[in-house]
Design a protein around this nucleic acid. Structure first.
Lengths: 184, 184
DNA sequence: GGAAGCATGTAACCCGTTACATGATTGC
DNA sequence: GCAATCATGTAACGGGTTACATGCTTCC
């Protein structure tokens, strides 16, 4: 079986959730996977094309009144098999997150104390925003009446986001304290 | 002032630490920045070339007995200015970490319970390894007699790695429990 | 009249990894 | 004799973002 990149598997997976068009896929990613996965239209449309070429999906163009035509994609059984076999594959390696603030802090000696402090404060603020976003998405999923079977798994990914973000916020607090205490 | 990519700033920063050659830079990154930054030779050598072209650094080729020639790079004052002004710039956005295991879990409904469990266990194991690596690097830095002024900042970045990794490990434990409890 | 949402798509560009090429010395 | 370490570099490829192009409808 041919190997695809992660983006292709992500799209394959999203096609199982009821999303059908490139536009739908983008919406779902932006609203539900955004904390650990991003995809642009520049990837989505070409990928959908190759899915069809490789027989993993089929297209159907539907006309709608008042809206542009939609190309709707449906997984074939081959598509479902490809997805499932990827899901069963072991994880290759945990990614190294490139972190701009750590890079700047690493060279902190060449920076004023004030500058390090303001970078950290700003970063902390962004993390706090992110945390609140996670909480609100979590509540939206928990409250939704049509408890899909997916929702448990979606909550797991949000829980990950919350825990890791919280740890990062605590690190900001601790680091800010240490920088302030230093040669006070 | 021209804008460069992060890799360029990373290399600019590393040149302040006493590393002089492309080889040295790679060594330092692999040993000290590896938990939040990676760079390959395919980036280092071309970048060093453009640093010289843009007047941010100067080269000096030195012959050594028993070893190949080394191209040693030294920052110019323009290079130091460029680094400093980047350090003072605010962070643009916190990165979205692409996470393969979250992507697979997101589609967990199409996967057997056993498969999700084994993915998580394997992931947890890798995180635990990573955690231990951080601890040992931390100890090496703390014990080193020549306490450089950099070491405090280096320890900050390791602390970040430890905290975030620990949170991720705890998430694995919690998620594994929840999957096991489910329709037991 | 204008913004926002729906909808699809391409081309240029940037960035990064991998594989390849070369070659000397040291230690097992 | 072989592996490892030191050392530099390029080319091909893969992946991703951004900007651009198009155009209709609905709501303010």
């Amino acid at each position: 079986m041919k190997n695809y990149n992660y983006t292709t598997y992500a799209i394959l997976g999203i096609l199982t959730t009821g999303c059908r068009s490139g536009y739908d896929i983008k919406q779902l990613i932006d609203h539900s996977l955004n904390h650990f996965w991003k995809v642009s239209y520049g990837q989505i449309y070409p990928t959908l094309k190759t899915l069809v070429e490789d027989g993993l999906a089929e297209v159907q163009t539907s006309s709608q009144k008042g809206k542009p035509d939609r190309n709707e994609y449906f997984l074939t059984s081959k598509g479902i098999e490809t997805l499932k076999s990827w899901l069963e594959e072991p994880i290759h390696q945990i990614p190294v997150e490139r972190n701009e603030i750590l890079l700047k802090l690493f060279f902190g000696r060449y920076q004023s104390k004030e500058s390090s402090v303001s970078l950290l404060k700003e970063y902390k603020h962004k993390l706090e925003d992110r945390y609140l976003t996670y909480v609100s998405i979590e509540q939206a999923i928990s409250k939704s009446k049509d408890k899909e079977k997916d929702s448990l798994f979606w909550l797991f990914t949000l829980d990950y986001g919350k825990r890791v973000t919280k740890a990062a916020i605590e690190w900001c607090t601790s680091t800010l304290e240490q920088i302030s205490d230093q040669e006070a």
